[in-house]
Write a protein that binds this DNA or RNA. Sequence first.
DNA 1: CCTTGACCCTCACGTAGCGTCAGGGTGTAG
DNA 2: CTACACCCTGACGCTACGTGAGGGTCAAGG
Lengths: 248, 248
Amino acid sequence: MAYTVKAVSDLAGVSIRTLHHYDAIGLVRPRERTEAGYRLYGRSDLERLQQVLFFKELGFGLEEIREILDRPDFDRRRALLDHHELLTHRKDRIERLIRAVERTLEGMEEGKTVEERVWFDGFDATQYEEEARQRWGHTAAYKESRERAAAYSQADWEAIGSEQTSILRDIASLADRDPADPEVLAAVGRMHRFINERFYTCSLEMFRGLGDLAVSDSRFTETYEKLRPGLPAFYKEAVAAYCARSRA
Amino acid sequence: MAYTVKAVSDLAGVSIRTLHHYDAIGLVRPRERTEAGYRLYGRSDLERLQQVLFFKELGFGLEEIREILDRPDFDRRRALLDHHELLTHRKDRIERLIRAVERTLEGMEEGKTVEERVWFDGFDATQYEEEARQRWGHTAAYKESRERAAAYSQADWEAIGSEQTSILRDIASLADRDPADPEVLAAVGRMHRFINERFYTCSLEMFRGLGDLAVSDSRFTETYEKLRPGLPAFYKEAVAAYCARSRA
DNA sequence: CCTTGACCCTCACGTAGCGTCAGGGTGTAG
DNA sequence: CTACACCCTGACGCTACGTGAGGGTCAAGG
């Protein structure tokens, strides 16, 4: 079954001009053209368009999307699972905006002063966009680690793997303590240094974001849960405590 | 309490460049400048910025936002209530996207073919943007009715009011019937013609959207409920039936 | 066959809303 | 004084299309 541009436009909710543009930049090309030059899209074209639209919805630029989709190891199913998770977080953001409205109204009704900070909760979308980019390797940090990785030998990788496992094991063994316990902080600090030395320059801000990923990214969550039940949440708290102490 | 650009940027989650831009176009201006030229924002500036960000979140352009905020009768509280409702609908959209992912995955897992239409549910944002514009009078139709209204006299307005009330009353009196009942359709048709004659060129598509507003916009819902409990939903169904019949 | 209307094409100008950078001033703590 | 964080204005550039011009294609109906 083939679709012309109007059919695809109606189906997908994008303009014909957008489809022309995506064809022109090689992002979503129709499988064929009629003799008259009409574009005819097939099912796999629609699959790709769907992916484009999800990535776009999550804040990626078109060139970024193209790079991701063209990876030889791109896996559609894996991507959909990711989209699902990230969209859930986007929904959280809207809920935060809704609550900001409610809090603002409360402040107006009851004559009490609500902090201005409350008014703006949810507007800053960078956290969510950063999360999406972390997942797909579109951060400056990822690029830096790629460059370093290019220089690693097999032995290097084995050493890195052992070191990382060792640190995580240590943290897991301390998971019954307070996240702010000095030994916990020391172990988390080793992780921070490990990343800085082996992968990329990792600011406290970024490290804190990685801590959050332990809870919000199912790949990390699963891995950490296998090490020890409850570890994701503990790790996040421990990283947060470490970052707060290091900043002071 | 005064805030400089960095403070506002951190508070509201917008860039300093954005604040410069908003000042330059007169959208959000700081209440004063220091002798060195630093911008100092006050509470009411932040209130306005909050409104700008909500409208922007809902898809309005900056010029549109300015026009709305500068109306003498702009009411902050009324606006917040609207934002609340519209954001709830935006959340619905994200939920639709999430379900589209789920349905796509189901189709892949079970080897059954899911219609391509399902893949794209939620991507078309025009419905939501149109809804927001309807509320704030930023549609071509609204502009047309404004022009016509300029030519109406007091007597015209009275006649229009009576006519509209009469039509709505008729529809309400038929609300116990099937929405596709011929008499219902005739009454709804009178409303359609009324709008075309008195306000603006109203396509079936647009009229259908107005029917939806009876349910989704609390102002219409309240008014219609007062006429008769359950009328909003009935009206929506009746308009939908009328539009379907008229298209055939 | 002609007409009409919906759909298709390419080309190309223009834009909204900033991001980024250059170059230089201001305020505060050590 | 130095260093650092913050501030200013000016201005180039960019992404992702929207819009319009001008013209071809397809299919149904007269």
